[in-house]
Amino acid sequence: MAKNNELWFHVKDLPGSHVVIQSTDPDQTTIHEAATIAAYFSKARLSASVPVDATLVKHVKKPNGSKPGYVIYDNQTTYFVTPDEEEIAKLRDK
């Protein structure tokens, strides 16, 4: 469903969910919220200053023969966020 020019987020080097912003020009608040969601729904949920990589969907690839869910990507920007259950609850209520 994600388009090539949308931003894709995933916690760096750990299992977790990915997040896609379905906009070609998201603001900084939306970027922060997406990174926080990706960090919260990962193995780093209880950590502080979690690195979350973001790149355009067109830079995300699944290598042939790789395990389900495994992807590689490049041209990323890394954001550092602290997962916060209260912030996630507020986002769910939006």
Rank of each mutant, 00 (worst) to 15 (best):
A2H: 04
A2K: 08
K3S: 02
N4H: 00
L7E: 07
L7A: 08
W8I: 00
K12L: 04
D13E: 14
Q22F: 05
S23I: 03
T24M: 08
P26R: 01
D27I: 10
D27A: 04
T30Y: 07
H32E: 12
A34C: 06
A34T: 00
A34H: 06
A34Y: 02
I37T: 08
A39G: 10
F41Q: 05
S42G: 06
S42T: 10
K43L: 14
K43Q: 15
R45K: 15
A48W: 04
P51R: 01
V52G: 02
V52F: 12
T55I: 09
L56Q: 08
H59W: 13
H59R: 10
V60G: 03
K61P: 04
K62T: 14
P63K: 10
P63H: 05
G65I: 11
G65C: 12
S66I: 04
S66Y: 05
S66G: 05
S66M: 09
P68S: 13
G69F: 03
Y70F: 14
Y70V: 12
V71M: 05
V71K: 01
D74F: 09
Q76E: 14
T77A: 12
T77W: 08
Y79M: 11
V81I: 12
V81W: 09
P83S: 08
E85W: 01
E86N: 12
I88E: 06
A89S: 12
A89F: 08
A89G: 04
L91Y: 05
R92P: 00
